[in-house]
Amino acid sequence: MEIRETVGAAVTLLGSVFIFLGGLGIVRMPDLFNRIQAGTKASTLGTILSLLGLAIMNEAWIWKLLVIIFFVLITNPISSNVISRAAHFRGTRMTNKTVADLLSDKNKKISEE
């Protein structure tokens, strides 16, 4: 009993570490796409892990927590995809470290034709 609750609390703590790293990433990264990479994914995993930890601690809540995990897992990639596509459409400036942007190259080729 005690052991199971401690394990659940530890998983929740691990999830909160990922949430913190997501916040750190969104502040440190130099441009929007890298912010999406570091921010939204880390906070997704963090949320899933902390909800799983609560599910381990309290087995009566497990189905409801699984529904929330399912929705987070489905909705989060869609929202980051929508924002990134809008930003690229808008011509958001990318960082100097960027190696290549094949999507802009293709769009330029189409508009020249």
């Binding site: 990433g25 130099p30 994914k41 470290k97």
Partner: peptide
Amino acid sequence: EIVKSNIDVALRVINPKLPINPGIVK
């Protein structure tokens, strides 16, 4: 895959030099 690559990106975020090499590929 999610766990593995999350750890990878987390290590990049913590690293003071911020070792990223980004780009858009097809």
